[in-house]
Structure formats: structure tokens, C-alpha cells
Design a binder for these strands. Structure first.
Lengths: 217, 217, 217, 217
DNA sequence: CATGAATGAGGCTTCATTCAT
DNA sequence: TATGAATGAAGCCTCATTCAT
């Protein structure tokens, strides 16, 4: 029973442990997304993960903790998918924005189960929903900072940037929500990202002059 | 034992019944909004409404049915608050849109409890959330029709109107969500409505020419 | 407002009162027989009888009391349908027995609803079932007395008459139970009554000599 | 972590599980028999069995399911206690019948609690009572087959065997019902079985010739 | 006499979690 | 590490009955 052997055993144990945990998370993702958090009873989860009750609690402190783990992971990946926009020229900024939106949409598409949990009609525990709200507020703050910067550069029209950041967030969320219903192709996502950006930058109206008129009452 | 007497009795009974029902709904609105549906136990509700268990079930088939009644009522009032836009001139249409948005925001402000239930971080039963989603889909459809009309008139830029209707819905929801946090004055609401419309119509950019450039890649 | 007028009013009130009570009992008979006592909720009964809650309690102290009224009435009619057998000759006794059995079966046939309550698969409150048991015990006692008398006359074989009275009761109950399933004609009933009597008096075996052998081990 | 160890653990777990289940069934048998199904509230049962609420539902889907388990078990044992009568000579058949009746009565005596549930004044859920009725109908069918056979051999008097089978069932049920009141000795049971058989085969009358007369009107 | 809104005790069941093995 | 039997708090709902009108 040398140290090596122990290492091997420990390694195997660790591998098995990780595998079990992964099995649980996979089942959780699917069930929570399909039925919501409250509607998913632990026994459902245990059966789907093929794990005993006790085993579950060996890996997570509570049902809610398992959910939080999913959430946390997804939010981090979402954060990571969005790189900072280091404005050089307006064109470059626009392209970076497009790329960011596309990457985020791609992630949402890849993780449709998780996305349904966050954006769509599935109810989740209040405590976690607040967590989620804080996350989105963080995103809104980032957007606002970008808008403020744009105003200083004279690119963005004067006005309440906090509000507009929220509006923009609403647009993004709706864009993401669409992905929770049907899977998109990469091409679709490109188009969607452009539509989002267009809408955000130029609104709905056709004639720039008409726009000016519309805005100034 | 005349018909009149019976009517009187029935009327009084009815009045009392309605009063009780109203008391229950009021308590439900407050508690559900504050704590969410699942976190609100029936006993809490009963105490807040000062009714006995049986009385509650005399008026509603289930806890969920009480929730549904609140929801239904609110959605109807929301629908009613938004009149159809019978486009004559662009200016008139714009004013009608503004008025609609303002009215909806006013309702949301008046019913902050209900609004939190619909727009914010409170979890509600999945079945009802789907109901809600159908409602919002209906709103999106209305918006899309308006955009299609605008395109035919040459006012709205070419592009996917279904998508833009969703975006617009996202903006509106975010605008409403803000009201769930702090009460607004009528003045605030006017300003908010204008910001919404501006954002939707003209986007973020300052210079109409820049817009044209931005849009055409 | 003479005394006469009052009498008239009182009479009318009484008539109406009786009519209401009858309506309740009719509904009770049908529902209890169809669904059992526990499975019949008061609201069902009220709707079937077209009576308000309070009205029901004006006529009966409780749901159970209504049931008891049905039971009591039926047992009394059952008692009344069976005349005493004043033995003169064996033949006459036999004919009287036959007539008694037929009358009882006729009543059971007429009141199939009530009969199902007493004889068949419908559960009734324990307290009333005990009442019922006492009634049947009374019937058994009557039968036993007749058997004792028959033994003294040398007609009935020696042996435990209490036991045989119970056996006979079992036969009668099974005979009645059959009626709860399908209605019989008068002719059927005659035949049934004869079969009952035959079985009771002479058993199953064909050959009287074989019988003697069978009995004496 | 050898297979043996797992087996051992599983075995112990199983043993404990079975013990708990048995404890619940024992308590259910006693309480249901004493107070009836509806009158026995779950808390009573839990206390008597010394198990927690959840534990009960770990073993049975519902209160009714626990009852059904008792019923099922008893009916099976009752079926098993009655061997087929393979007629050779009339005497042998008679002895086998006697033995069957005795065995059934012995079981009824041994399980007085269960017997009270089935035969006596305790009300049980309608669904289960129907189950019970089907069982008894099955018994009646068996009896009828035997009577038909007896008729073909010329032992049983001509007549409606279905009816007589029901009569006989009535006798047997009444005989069993007696056991639910006071415990019998083996000797009592022998006597009872003989009385049942005598009554069934030869009826009540003393004189075989009188029998013939009585039957032929 | 008739009504029906109100009552609250009592019912059954499900749940996430614990812990001995 | 993994197991699964046991837990009991908490949940929702139905019921027969009362009583003011």
C-alpha cells in the first residue's frame, strides 16, 4: 500500500466523485429547465441522475445549492463571453459590439436549458432570482458606462443613459429569450446580432431626418 | 316574504360576499407581491385577509385560482389601458403612442404590487407564467402589426418586424420594471414615455448621418 | 287576520315543510345508495334536493340524522311487511312463510336504493351499521323462536337453533342482495321465495335417505 | 466494498424496511378493525405503529393502499386455506368439505381483526368493498360449479344452482361473522362446520319424508 | 320557513433533509 | 464515497355545521 497506490486510489476516487457531481448537474439542468425549480422534486432529480439521496447531499448542501451552482457557472461563462470594448474608432467599436452580442447569443444557444431557466417562463427560487437580478444590473451598469463614454465622444444623443442602458438590456434579454424557443444557426445569430445593434443604434424609423423631427417634438 | 324583501336580502348577501372576496384579493396582492407565490402560505393569506380557511375556498377553488384572478384582472386592465392607434398623420400616431405608453406606465405605477408580480423578481407558478407569456406574445403581435403598417407607409425601416416587435416589448418591460422599484410622478412618467419612444424610434446615436453609416455596414 | 286565515297559512306552511323534507329524503336515498354515505358530500345532496344549506339543517340535525331517518323508515316497513306466523298446520305455516318472504322481497325490490344501502357494497357510518346489526339480530331472534317452536313440535331437527337462525338470516340477506342488482318480476320473486324456503327446509341433497346418511356421520 | 459487504448492507436495510412495514400493517389491522377505516385517522395509525408520517408514505402510497394490502393478503390466505374438492365418493367429498370449512373458520378465528373488517360492522372504502364483493362472487362461482357437478351425479336436487351457491355463501358468511365476536375453540369450530354442512345439505326439517312433502308443495 | 356566507377542525400527502450503515 | 430508510414540518383542501338576515 505505497503512496503511489494511494494516489492512484485517490485519483480514481476523485474522478468518480467528479463524475457523480457532473451527472447530478446534468440532470438538474435538464429537469429544472423543463419543469422549473419548484416543480422538480428531489426524487425526480435523483432518478434522472441515477444517484441515491445521500449521495446528492454529499455533493450539494441543498437542492437550492445545486441550482445556484448551475446559475453561477452560467453567469460566469456569460460574463467571460463578453469582452471589453476598447473603443478606437466607431467602426471598430461597432464590430466589437457585434462580436460580443454574437458570442453571448451563441452561448445562450449552446445552453438552451440554462437559458430557459434564466430568461423564460420557468420559475426559480426568489433568492436566486435576486442573484440573477443583480447580475443583470451589473450588465446594465456596464452598458451605461459605455453610453456615458459615447456621450462624451459626442456619438450618443444626450439623455438619461441609465434608462437607456436598461432599455438596451431589455432588448438583449428578448433577443436571448427567442433562442430558448428554437435553436438558431450561426448565420441566424449573425443576423440577429445585427438587428439588435441596428435597433439599438438607429431605432425603427427609416428617414434620419424624420427621426430628428420625431424626437424633437 | 315579498320579492322585494328577497331581493334586499340577496343584495345584502351579495355585497358582503363581494367585500370578503375583495379582502382576500387585496391580501393576496400584497403578500404575493412581497413574498412570491410559493413563499406565501395559505395561513399567512388567511390572517392578512382575516378570513377562515373555508371562506377562502368559498371564493376561490385554490390558492392558484386566487392568483390567476389577480393576474387576469390586471392583464385586462392593461389591455384596456392601451387604445388602438388609428394612424392618420405620423405626428398624431406618435402622440397616440406616447399617450398609450403613458397610460400603461400609469397603471403599472398605480398597481405596483401587481406589477412586481408580473415584471419582477417574484416567482409565480409555471402555469400562470405561461399565461403571462401568451399575453406578452399577444402584445408583441399587436406591435408587429403596427410596424408592418409603418413599413407599408414607408415610415419604418425595412427588416424583420417580428423581431423588432419583441425588442420593443423588451424595452417596454424594462421600462415598467423600473416602476416596480420606486413610484414615479406623472412628470417622471411623461419623461419616461418620451425616452421609450425616442429610443424605439431613433435609437441611441446622435447624428442622423452617422446612423445611416452605422446601419449600412 | 282571523284564526282561519292563520290556520290556512299554517297548513300551507306545513305542506311546504313536508314537501321540502320529502325532497331531501328522496335525494338522500338516491345519492347515498349510489355513492355511499361518506362519498356523498352535503353540497351534492343540497343540489340534488334543490335546498339551501340552512334548510337542510332545519329538517335534520345532521347528515347522519337524515341517513338514520331513511334507515329507520325502511326497517320499520320491513318489519311491517313480515306478519307473524301463527302455526296451525305445517302446510299453512309453510304458506305463511312463503308469503312473508315474498312480501319482504317485494319491498326490497320496490326500494332498490335503500336496499343497496343496507345489503350491498355501500359503506355507511359505523354507528348506523351497528343499528342495522341490531335489527338483523332481532330478526335472527324471531327466527330462532320459530325454530325452537318447530323443535318442540318435532318438525325441526335437533340442534343449535341460534346458529341455524343466523344461517337462515344469511340466506335471506343473500336473497335480498340479489334484488339490489337487477329488478325482479313478481313471478321471479315467487320462485325465489320458494327456492329460499326449499333450501332452508330441505337443503341441497336429492335423496331423503342420502340426507339421513349424510347427517349422521 | 466487496459485493458481499454490499449484500450484507442491503440485506440489513431490507430487513429493517420489512420490519417497519410489518409494524405499520399490524397497527393498521388493529385500528381499522376496531374503529373502521374512516374513523381511523392517520395520526392514530402513526402513533400505534410508532413511525413518522413520511415513513408511512415510504411504504404505502396512501392510507387506502395500506388497507388494500391487508385485504389482499387476507383474501389470498383465505383462498389458500380452501383446497379443491376432488370428488371420489360422497363420503370423501363430505369430509373434504368439512375440512375446508373448518380451515376457513380457523383462519377467520386466527385473524379476528381482519375478519371484522371483512364480515362485520366496520365500514370500509367503497372501492375496496367492491374488491371484496368480487372475491365473494368468485367464491360463489366455485360453489356453483361444485353444485352443478353434484347435480350431474344425481346427488343434488334439481334447481337453480347459481341461486343456491349464493345462499350457501350467505350461510358461510354468517358462520364466519360469528367468529368475529368471540374466539372459538377448535372443538367449537368442528361443531360449527358440521352444523353448516348439515344445514346446507339437509336443511332444517327432521323427517326426510316430511321434507319430500314440503318441497313438493 | 328559507337562505347562503362564514367557519375552523380535521383530513391526507409531499417535501427537502438527516444519518446509521 | 455511496446508500436509502426514516424524519416531521409544512403544505393544501374538504367537510359538516352555524347563524345572521
Amino acid at each position: 500500500m505505497s503512496a503511489r497506490e494511494l494516489d492512484g486510489r485517490a485519483r480514481r476516487a476523485r474522478a468518480s466523485r467528479e463524475a457523480t457531481r457532473a451527472r447530478i448537474l446534468k440532470a438538474a439542468r435538464e429537469l429544472f429547465a423543463r419543469q422549473g425549480f419548484h416543480q422538480t422534486a428531489l426524487p425526480d432529480l435523483l432518478e434522472a441522475a441515477d444517484v441515491a439521496r445521500g449521495t446528492f447531499y454529499l455533493h450539494f448542501d441543498s437542492k437550492e445549492a445545486a441550482f445556484a451552482a448551475l446559475l453561477e457557472d452560467f453567469l460566469q461563462r456569460l460574463s467571460a463571453s463578453v469582452g471589453p470594448v476598447t473603443t478606437r474608432s466607431p467602426e471598430a467599436a461597432r464590430d466589437e459590439l457585434l462580436a460580443n452580442i454574437e458570442r453571448a447569443l451563441a452561448l445562450v444557444d449552446d445552453e438552451r436549458d440554462l437559458s430557459r431557466l434564466l430568461f423564460a417562463e420557468v420559475s426559480i427560487p426568489d433568492e436566486l432570482r435576486q442573484h440573477l437580478d443583480r447580475f443583470f444590473s451589473g450588465v446594465a451598469a456596464l452598458i451605461q458606462r459605455a453610453l456615458d463614454h459615447g456621450q462624451r465622444l459626442g456619438l450618443v444623443r444626450p439623455g438619461d443613459t441609465a434608462l437607456r442602458a436598461r432599455f438596451l438590456l431589455g432588448v438583449l434579454i428578448e433577443a436571448a429569450r427567442g433562442s430558448t424557443r428554437k435553436r438558431r444557426t450561426a448565420r441566424d445569430r449573425q443576423r440577429l446580432a445585427r438587428e439588435v445593434l441596428e435597433f439599438a443604434l438607429a431605432g425603427l424609423l427609416r428617414d434620419p431626418r424624420a427621426i430628428a423631427a420625431a424626437v424633437r417634438r
